[in-house]
Every structure is written in structure tokens, then in C-alpha cells.
Design a protein around this nucleic acid. Structure first.
Lengths: 150, 150
DNA sequence: GTAGAACTTGACGTTGACGTAAAGGTTTGG
DNA sequence: CCAAACCTTTACGTCAACGTCAAGTTCTAC
């Protein structure tokens, strides 16, 4: 009924995400990523989902250039969200409570979207600069070929 | 004939760019930004162009998340480029030499473009994720309003 | 059941990009 | 010309995000 659910040791998980084992332990200490389980002897065991989350963290870090605290905030929003979805499925919940949680998640998501949008806009500005420069080079190249100067 | 050419002291230049004076001295030490001149007493004097360069550096740092060494490399490309333009204007230059310099500049520019493009692509991926999430929230909101469950 | 690889928890080291304090020299307005 | 504001160099401090031992424990393959 339940899938095989591969459990990875820390080294395997780290390699799968392209980071060091130190990074995994550090992220755990910072509350960003807790391994899904442990071996009887106490070793960390990671699932594919854990690795996906790890990759996600790296994306946010590298693409957004955000520090780990900021990323932690983003993740807790997403986690919050997941629990909202769970809670939402339970029939016992009051509709008011559900709407409240939903509103919170939406606000945080909107905030994140704005940050990303701003960043993309800035990057596009740089991109435009570079394109303009490329065009100038092409011009210069043309001028060099046909020296109609005087 | 020549414009007034306002010269700023370090504090003014720093404030104009929204950074600390320490940052200016640090960038100078790292070879990223040398003031255009000095007062007789030895104080740094910056021009508007210097400030523009400073702003440019900050843009690259914040938008690209690049470290100062990388930014330094980018800047030296641009500087190289400016000197190429200067050299290119001189009539004494051989056309072969000009083409050589131009090719170098174009190669470096292309490289930079690719890096920026990749970054934008990554950001757009994140953007898409966030949009999908927003859509899901909207769905949930709808479901909450009309509980057609059984 | 044992060797060796991989893991555990400390704890100290490193690097980048500045912050900050000290001790003195320079500018500038009145 | 003089005080306040601003600047100079030098040097140590800081913070994040890990890297790197060290000393001991657990896994895995044979």
C-alpha cells in the first residue's frame, strides 16, 4: 500500500542536493530542515521529500540571495500552508478559522511575490544594459568594416 | 567650456549612493572604485561619474548576488571596453588590432549576458511557483465559500 | 564479528564585507 | 583664526554560512 519510501543517510542526501553534510546539519540547527527520521542508532535519515526541500532552500538562497533567516520565514509560510490544507480538510474546523489561516498565507505569498517581481525587474534592467552594449559592439564592428569616415 | 565638475567629499558621495564611507574606502582597497581626485590635503574627491559607478557596483552586488571579486571582473571588462572605444577612435590603430579588442569585449559581454539570463530564468521559475500557489489559495477560498462536499 | 566507511556531537577556524573605535590631520563657516 | 564637522590611516570586531579537525559511535559488507 505504501511506497518503498527510501531513506537516505546524510551523505547520500547531501550529495543528491549538491551540498555538504555540514550544510545539512547546519540547516537542521537553524530549523530549516529536520530529517524525517533517525536510525535506531541515532543517525539522520532523509526522504526524497527532505532532499526536495533542501534543493528548494538552495534555490531560494542562490536565486534570491536571501539569508537563512529570511528563507526560514518563507519556509514556515509554506509549512504553515501545508498544515492549513490539512486542517482545512478536517470537517470539524470552523469556516472562520479556515479563512483566517488562508488570509495569512495569501498575505505572505503576496509579499514574497512582490520581492521576487522587484528582483526580476532589476535583473531585466541589467539585461537591457547588456543588450544595448552588445548592439553598440555590432555597430562598431560595422563601422570598422566600412570606414566611411571623412 | 568644461562643466563645473562638482567634486564631492567621501561622506557626500557615500550618502548619494546610500552606502557608508567605510564601503567606499573598502571598494577602493579592493580596486573597484578609485576616487577621481584628491584635495591638496589628501582627502578623496569623487565625481558624479564615480557615484554612478558606485551605484552600479551596488546593483550588481544586490541583483546578481555576486561577490566583489566577480563584480571586479565585470567592471574591468567594462573598463576594458571603454579603453577599447578610446583606442578605437585613434586613427593610428591597425584595423586588425581593433577587431581583436572588439572580439574580446564581445566575448566578455556575451558571457555576462548568459549569467544574467540564467539568473532571470531561475527567478521566473520561482515566480511561477508563487503564482501557482496563489491560484491554489484562490481555489481553496472558493471551496470554502461553497462547501459542495457530499 | 570485524574492518573500514560513514556517521555522531562538539568546538574552533575561515572568508567576505563591512562596522567601529582610536588618534590625529583637513575643511569650512563665521 | 578657530571650533566644529569631516576627513585620514590603522587596527581590531562582527556576523553569516559554512569548513575542518577531533574523538568517539554506528553501519555495512564480507
Amino acid at each position: 500500500m505504501n511506497e518503498p519510501l527510501r531513506l537516505m543517510r546524510i551523505g547520500e542526501a547531501a550529495e543528491a542536493a549538491g551540498v555538504s553534510t555540514r550544510t545539512l546539519r547546519y540547516y537542521e540547527q537553524r530549523g530549516l530542515l529536520t530529517p524525517s527520521g533517525h536510525s535506531p542508532g541515532g543517525e539522520r535519515r532523509y526522504t526524497e521529500d527532505d532532499v526536495a526541500r533542501l534543493v528548494h532552500i538552495r534555490e531560494l538562497a542562490e536565486l534570491l540571495g536571501a539569508d537563512l533567516d529570511t528563507i526560514g520565514a518563507m519556509l514556515s509560510v509554506e509549512d504553515r500552508l501545508a498544515s492549513i490544507r490539512t486542517e482545512y480538510r478536517k470537517p470539524g474546523q470552523s469556516a472562520a478559522r479556515q479563512l483566517e489561516l488562508l488570509a495569512e498565507a495569501e498575505a505572505l505569498n503576496t509579499d514574497l511575490q512582490q520581492r521576487v517581481d522587484a528582483r526580476i525587474a532589476g535583473m531585466k534592467k541589467v539585461q537591457a544594459h547588456l543588450r544595448a552594449k552588445a548592439a553598440r559592439y555590432a555597430d562598431i564592428r560595422d563601422t570598422l568594416r566600412s570606414p566611411a569616415d571623412a
